[in-house]
Design a protein around this nucleic acid. Structure first.
Length: 459
DNA sequence: TGGCGGTACTG
DNA sequence: CAGTAC
DNA sequence: GCCA
């Protein structure tokens, strides 16, 4: 609901149009139907002025009353942004909030999460976790083809732009049907809007179709789908005249990683069920528990984000006493190898006691089990929250968090959040100081964001 | 026009 | 260092 | 390829 008082006529209708364009629903104060989730008012409106406008106070009880600036930013970012300082006030609540427990082994902060009544509203509220199906699937698929082609040919900044645009479009509740609707979105400029328009009109992208037919594009895609092969190597091999996996096996010089990539090629292209990812995580949890009781393991990545299938399994290992994680890595890997669970190493730093990351391949002990990618990181307990955040992703989510941190003069990594970071161009002049981040929620808080549970961290 | 996440490991 | 990956 |  937008309270028109104090908002210029022109601006009001502009805002209203945009809300609708983004899939929102405008609710008037007289309308009985429909849930009210947010109230937008002019910054200068007083509580009394507000009460006067709304006859029925029960109608707005507990609903946040926000400045127009909040709505503008939501529209610009195409997301429901934290209310924070945009919130002016809220009428006393009538509805209680509900506490819901989660069953996964998350740290205390996430054992309960608040579910308040005023959740969805306009659909730009889709914080990625709401399981709405993608109504612009055709568009995102076509753009995805180009994104991949650009990535495979080392044009990764362009690919990044495409991926961002795709993420943005996925959040939309309504199909895009015009150039203008696309162009309004943050991260979509003339070129992308053009392409989207073409997809809407023609049902496909000529450029993607044409490129996909090309031998080079198809070969680069094949090569880069081998683990350990990126755009540069693929291009090199193509230049050498290699065209298929057999050529690669017989004529290319392969790194250890690429040999494994080839050996497990078919299996690693597949995603596994969520259940299997859970089984794999359980194997590690059991081994860790036997080695050092009290050690905690967290299955992160897409598993923690609640996905129904997983491309790999990411397991974070730590110990609450802050010390026992040290020296745990080598015995753990040894034990997992001895049992035949770990089959190949992709990245392992054997001669350093400071190893923190292991990337490898595993296989469950059962009939027809497939090779699966497994990542393990061992972290000191003090870095648990930033590490969980990093390892849970998604990649795009991590990027945006770190970008925001930068803007605020901070720096976020899997080790911690620092404030007062001074940069001169790229290099840091001052490392700043570490902030206290006992929980993931505290990281959101430092950045002025509302907490987002893992399921809502897809974009 | 420069920047686009920040870091760990391999060869 | 470049390349690759998370 | 888009944005500040």
């Amino acid at each position: 609901m937008i309270v028109p008082s104090g908002i210029g006529k022109k601006r009001l209708s502009l805002l209203q149009d945009k809300v609708v364009l983004h899939g929102g629903r405008l609710v008037s104060s007289f309308e009985e139907e429909g849930r009210l989730t947010h109230v937008i008012v002019d910054d200068m409106l007083s509580i009394d002025g507000f009460k006067k406008y709304v006859e029925d106070e029960a109608r707005v009880a507990g609903v946040p009353v926000l400045k127009t600036q909040w709505l503008s930013r939501c529209l610009a970012e195409n997301a429901i942004i934290p209310l924070g300082e945009h919130q002016m006030f809220a009428m006393p609540k009538i509805c209680p909030t509900v506490l819901v427990g989660t069953s996964l082994g998350h740290p205390h902060e996430e054992q309960t999460k608040e579910i308040s009544i005023n959740k969805d509203g306009f659909a730009c509220a889709h914080a990625s976790g709401m399981k709405t199906d993608n109504v612009n699937q055709l568009i995102t698929e076509e753009l995805g083809k180009l994104a991949k082609i650009y990535k495979n040919s080392n044009d990764h900044w362009r690919a990044l732009t495409y991926e961002r645009a795709i993420n943005q479009i996925k959040k939309l509740p309504k199909p895009i049907s015009s150039y203008e609707e696309a162009k309004v979105l943050h991260g979509i400029g003339p070129s992308l809007a053009d392409k989207i328009w073409e997809i809407v009109e023609q049902g496909k992208l000529r450029k993607a179709e044409k490129l996909s037919e090309g031998e080079k594009v198809r070969t680069l895609e094949l090569f880069t789908s081998i683990w350990g092969v990126g755009a540069t190597t693929a291009e090199l091999w193509y230049g050498m005249g290699l065209r298929n996996l057999n050529d690669v096996k017989t004529k290319a010089h392969l790194t250890h990683q690429q040999q494994i990539g080839l050996k497990c090629f078919d299996d690693l292209l597949e995603r596994m069920s969520r259940a299997e990812a859970g089984e794999i995580a359980a194997v590690i949890r059991k081994a860790v528990e036997e080695l050092c009781p009290g050690t905690q393991t967290f299955a992160c990545g897409s598993y923690r984000r609640g996905k129904s299938t997983c491309g790999d399994v990411d397991v974070l290992v730590t110990h609450p006493d802050g010390v026992s994680h040290e020296g745990l890595f080598q015995p753990l890997l040894k034990k997992l190898k001895l049992s035949g669970f770990l089959t190949d190493d992709l990245m392992i730093q054997e001669q350093s006691t400071a190893q923190q990351k292991y990337l490898g391949v595993c296989k469950l002990h059962k009939e027809n089990a497939k090779y699966r990618r497994l990542d393990i990181i061992v972290m000191p307990y003090g870095e648990l929250a930033p590490a969980l955040m990093y390892f849970t992703g998604s990649a795009h989510f991590n990027r945006s968090m770190r970008l925001l941190a930068n803007k605020m003069g901070m720096s976020l990594s899997e080790h911690g959040l620092r404030a007062g970071v001074v940069r001169q161009g790229r290099e840091k002049v001052n490392d700043g100081h570490l902030l206290e981040t006992p929980t993931e929620a505290s990281i959101f808080q430092h950045l002025g964001l509302e907490y987002r549970p893992p399921e809502d961290r897809d974009h």
